[in-house]
């Protein structure tokens, strides 16, 4: 079975994000980078499929030089090889350019099933998986919490409000992983030591025949407004205080 897992390197969930003074992005010097947690579910599911049905797992990532660490993490978990799409021209890639780059790299590889996280926790756009499926012309199964493989097709579960959908499709297909799909394993020390020796192909935009044809541009990054100080309603008369509270909730907070 030829399994592909796409991963993105994102700031650690606990990283303190600071917006650059010119609003062009975030300060990325001191940040600790990790694998997007939703992509981790995808990698884990890929490894489980491989363990059960044989085959190999290829990790594909678009990102700057440091993204190699995230590819190595996936290799340390047990994936077999990697493709690192790295090009300064892709630094400002939007979802479409990222999906195009992934599609160009994956087209040349045998692929039965492709895993992506349902979204990345940094930009939360959630488009890459869907675009990738479209560019490859194959079905997509999104927000998957359970996956069963049956020879030439897969059956998945996707929860919806008050119910769950059971969906089936033929292979190849793109699956986007949602929390609950599995419990990602920790890389073992032997896995970490072996990861260094596993092959990772580094490709640039020219080698893949893609251009940075950005469809959507981040115009500006602004930090959320600082929280205003709370208000304490003083006074001796409870009824008066309650009236003032109601007025504040209605007129200032517009909550009632």
């Amino acid at each position: 079975m030829n399994i592909i897992a796409c991963v993105k390197q994102v700031p650690d969930t606990e990283a303190q994000i600071k917006v650059k003074a010119d609003g062009s992005g975030i300060e990325d010097g001191q940040i600790k980078w990790v694998m997007n947690p939703y992509d981790e579910f995808g990698v884990e599911e890929a490894l489980k499929l491989k363990e059960k049905n044989g085959g190999d797992v290829t990790i594909v990532s678009v990102g700057p030089a440091r993204a190699m660490e995230t590819i190595r993490t996936a290799l340390a978990m047990g994936a077999d090889k990697g493709i690192h799409i790295s090009d300064p021209a892709l630094d400002n890639a939007d979802a479409f350019v990222t999906a195009s780059a992934l599609a160009a790299a994956i087209k040349g590889l045998p692929h039965d099933i492709i895993f992506c996280g349902q979204r990345a926790i940094d930009d939360d756009s959630g488009q890459v998986g869907a675009m990738l499926a479209e560019l490859l012309g194959i079905p997509q199964l999104t927000l998957v919490t359970k996956l069963d493989f049956a020879g030439s097709s897969v059956k998945v579960i996707r929860p919806i409000e008050g119910a769950q959908l059971s969906i089936e499709t033929s292979l190849p297909c793109v699956v986007t992983a949602q929390k609950g799909l599995n419990e990602p394993r920790y890389a073992s020390l032997p896995g970490i030591m072996k990861a260094k020796k596993k092959p990772v192909d580094v490709k640039n935009a020219a080698a893949l025949g893609i251009a940075s044809d950005v469809k959507a541009k981040v115009a500006k990054v602004v930090p959320p407004p600082a929280r205003a100080a709370g208000k304490i309603i003083c006074g001796d008369d409870a009824a008066q205080k309650a009236a003032e509270l109601a007025r504040c909730l209605r007129e200032e907070a517009k909550a009632i």
């Binding site: 660490e69 190595r72 993490t73 340390a76 920790y186 890389a187 020390l189 970490i192 030591m193 990861a195 260094k196």
Partner: peptide, 14 residues
């Protein structure tokens, strides 16, 4: 080394 960092991160995560 890269491996030492990686192991440290893995244990810390666990």
């Amino acid at each position: 080394s890269e491996e030492q960092c990686s192991m440290k991160d893995t244990v810390a995560k666990l």
